[in-house]
Nucleic acid binder design. Sequence first.
RNA 1: GUGAUCAUAGCUUAAUGGUAAAGCUCCGCUCUGUGGAAGCGGCGAUACGGGUUCAAUUCCCGUUGGUCACC
Length: 401
Amino acid sequence: MIEFKILKKSEKSQARLGVLKTCHGEVETPAFVPVATQGVIKTLTSEEVLETKTKILICNTYHLHLRPGEKIIKGFKGLHKFMNWPKALMTDSGGFQVFSLGFGRDLGISKILKKNSEIELKTQPNFLKITNEGVLFRSHLDGNKVFIGPKESIKIQESLGADIIFAFDECPPPAVDFKYMKKSLERTHLWADICLKVKQSDQALFGIVQGGRFKSLRTESADFLSSRDFDGFGIGGEFGSDKKSMIDMIGWTLEKLPKIKPRHLLGIGQPDDILKIIKAGVDTFDCIIPTHYARRGIAFTRFGSINIGKSIYLNDKNSLDSEKNVVGFVKNPLYQRKNSGYFGVNKKCSCFVCQNYSRSYLCHLFRAGEITALKLLTFHNLWFFNSLVEKIRDDIKKEKI
RNA sequence: GUGAUCAUAGCUUAAUGGUAAAGCUCCGCUCUGUGGAAGCGGCGAUACGGGUUCAAUUCCCGUUGGUCACC
């Protein structure tokens, strides 16, 4: 059971200010949704995640089904109790793993295709078999065969007990031709109806729009799903070869979706994407960037990203969020100084990492392979992303965006 | 002291009488519904002094240093 209220609609863009009410608290939208694939934000406890201003997390059906299995979690009456997370939760359906553990692994590609890359597409990836019934996986853990279709996915997600669950979709690799994409889309729509039909819980169910880079298919998909009784919508799949085409594709889709229902963008959220996708009308979005990059030593600041492992930071007594020695993301004009930091964020980061620890110390910890480095960077990055979105909400309220 | 043996990149090891190779480290880069993963690129070496040879890191002699054995 969720309730979504739109508090304000921007005059300047498609951005909306809203509140998503769940049985586990309210989420002010637009909101960032950190990714807790295995029921944890890697390196942090649930208590620590609460301190990052996070109000909602997304976990993964496929991963939790394989380990520890939904029966264990159901024994705790769901994920909230199991992971001691009192706030809202989403679970991703597992459909994306058709891509990321199949085509993605076969071809070594991501869903935003780089320009000039040529990929030879196969009809079926090596590690799984897709039929109208569902997907036969090979577990990435032990190679065992696992079958998940729409019925299975919903059943697992009901056991997991998140507030918001997603329909099982097929996420085809980038650059597939129109014919395959159309066929795949029909399958995703078939599965969407099955998900609606088999769901017995009162969890909110979001349908997922696919259609790849084809406008007619994106539109068709949005129209189809809009005609069904979903509580909200996810936008998935490939997003073209550059940032502009990504925003265009999101635009085609959102235009067709019912305005009163929440829209979640799946898996997108580089810092320089955030303002754009919110202006396009996205209410929530998840992304691994702040947490995954933290574990590679990358910290986000108002002025750009830094790689804390670099030797120049060994002698840097500033906090992470300092203007000095920022070398990453210079290609992105939004990071340049004349804008006084990200989208007008002019206050120094107030997270406890920035208040208490120097870049020098963090650099030492990271180079020494100490796990505390990963933990502190993860905390900072989540705080940074949440603060950024908080600032954007404020700007919508003040009619700046 | 005598004998043996070794000396190649910051580290650990290849190879060859004819362009000195790799792993780790180090320096860059990639990463969007998550492997603390992976990949790409870069810097960087024949201990020192002679000799033989068209050509020596390689063969010979010496020096220095390390290791082992013996007195």
